[in-house]
Every structure is written in C-alpha cells, then in structure tokens.
C-alpha cells in the first residue's frame, strides 16, 4: 500500500514536470476557460437575465468547464503512455495499474488547481464579487476538487481504451460539453421543456448550484450532497472500470 502511494507520488511528480514543459498546451487549457468566460460575460451576458449580475452567475459554471478541459488531458497522457510502452517500464518496476493512473490523476488535479486559481483571478478582475463565508469557500473548493478527481479518473479510464492521443481527445468531448446543458450559463427554465429532465438531473447542475450557494452565501439546499454523491459514484465507476481495463489492456 505504501509502495503504491509512493509510486503514485513519484508519477504525479513526473506528470507535473512533463506538463510544465508542455507550457503551450497548459496555457491553452488555462486560457480557453478564461476566454469563454469573457465571451459569455461580455458578448452573451447582456442578453441573459439571471436575476443577478451575469458574471456572478457564470463563474461557477466556468470553473466546472475548466475542470472538464483539465480532465480531458488525462485521457491523452494515459493513452500516450500506453501507446509508447512507457507503461511497460513502470510495470517491470512492479508499479500496478492503480498507482499509475493515480499519478496521472494527481498531476491533473494539481494542474487544475492552478488553472482554477487563474480563472478566479480573472473573474475578480472583471467584477466577480462573491459573498461566501470561509467555510463556504472551503466547501466549494472541496466539491470542485472532488469533481475534478472523479472526471479525471473517468478520463484516465477512457485513455486506457483509446489507441491514439487523437481518439483520447475526442472521447473526452462529453466532459467538456456537459456544462452547457446545465444551469452553468443560462437558467434551466429558459431551455426547451424536453431538456429540463436531463439538465436538472445531470451531475453538473447540482454541482454548480451548490457552488453558487456556497460562494454567494445563499441557501444551497441538498445540492452539495447530491453533487458529492455524483462525484463518489462517478469515481467508484471510474476506479472499477479502469482496474478492469488496465488488466484487459495488459493481458
């Protein structure tokens, strides 16, 4: 167990080192959410009535969007390691599948923590003024990290099944798309009624609702618990699936 943990730590360090050197990719993945935030706030925001200033409404959604972009990169790096045989080196050093994936996920979460901070910084610069308590902030950050971990691990599992980096990039598309049909950018009531069922019950909506509640110090109801349950469920599925897939791919 401690072996697995130290392997995962070493591999996380490796992942972070490598992404530091692929700065262009990292910057792109950080700039994109910021650009989208600017587009939404300044281009579309004026036309969207959310009952608050639009920037206040949209920031939690942008943070979740940013998590999706970050998580998608996990699939690409896992799939590259599988394709290039780097994983064989790790396996002959007796590193198992779980520490291998945990290293990738930990690197992604670290990267994502950084990009989340940048997005928040940019949000403040354009007038985001949250009113959350310290506890609210902590809870919101914790939830976001749980979400990032769950989707990164899901993404890592997808990286195991795709044979090329391009395919790995493509299959994670849904993670980046998921915030759009949710309450991230527009209130769900404004969507066509056939979408309500999906939009209200998909994982991103309770996540965003609870982040809004926690950051703006408004009642969030049971949304945080629902969001947390989603994260736990997704993570469990991802762990089980990646375990099976890793064994299958390395038979």
């Amino acid at each position: 167990m401690s072996d697995a943990l130290s392997s995962a730590t070493v591999l996380a360090g490796r992942g972070i080192r490598i992404s530091r050197r692929n700065l262009d990719a990292v910057i792109t993945s950080m700039m994109l959410p910021i650009m989208l935030m600017l587009v939404f706030v300044y281009f579309f925001g004026g036309a969207i009535d959310t009952g608050t200033r639009y920037v206040t409404y949209v920031v939690p959604g942008v943070l979740v969007l940013c998590a999706g972009f970050g998580a998608a990169s996990t699939a690409v790096s896992v799939s590259e390691d599988m394709r290039l045989g780097v994983v064989d080196r790790f396996r002959t050093l007796d590193v198992g599948g779980t520490p291998f994936l945990a290293g990738h996920v930990a690197a992604t979460v670290t990267r994502n923590a950084l990009s989340t901070a940048l997005v928040l910084g940019a949000a403040f610069a354009i007038g985001f003024r949250p009113a959350g308590t310290a506890a609210g902030w902590l809870a919101a950050i914790g939830l976001l990290l749980a979400w990032i971990t769950a989707v990164s691990w899901l993404s890592a599992a997808l990286g195991l099944v795709t044979r090329t980096a391009e395919a790995a990039g493509a299959v994670t598309f849904f993670m980046m798309f998921l915030p759009y049909p949710s309450s991230a950018f527009v209130p769900i009531e404004t969507m066509p009624s056939w979408l309500h069922g999906f939009a209200e019950h998909q994982p991103v909506t309770p996540l965003i609702e609870s982040m809004r509640g926690l950051l703006l110090d408004r009642p969030a109801g049971d949304a945080p618990w629902i969001a947390l349950a989603w994260c736990a469920g997704l993570l469990t599925v991802a762990l089980a699936a990646s375990g099976c897939l890793f064994r299958f791919r390395t038979r």
């Binding site: 490796r14 080192r17 490598i18 050197r21 692929n22 290039l84 045989g85 780097v86 064989d88 080196r89 002959t92």
Partner: peptide
Amino acid sequence: ISLTGQYAAVDETQ
C-alpha cells in the same frame, strides 16, 4: 529482471 523494449520507453520531455 530489466526490460528494454523495441521502442525506447523514456519521456522525451524529461
């Protein structure tokens, strides 16, 4: 054991 595979399993960006 040690194994050196057909394609060098080293990270280009390390």
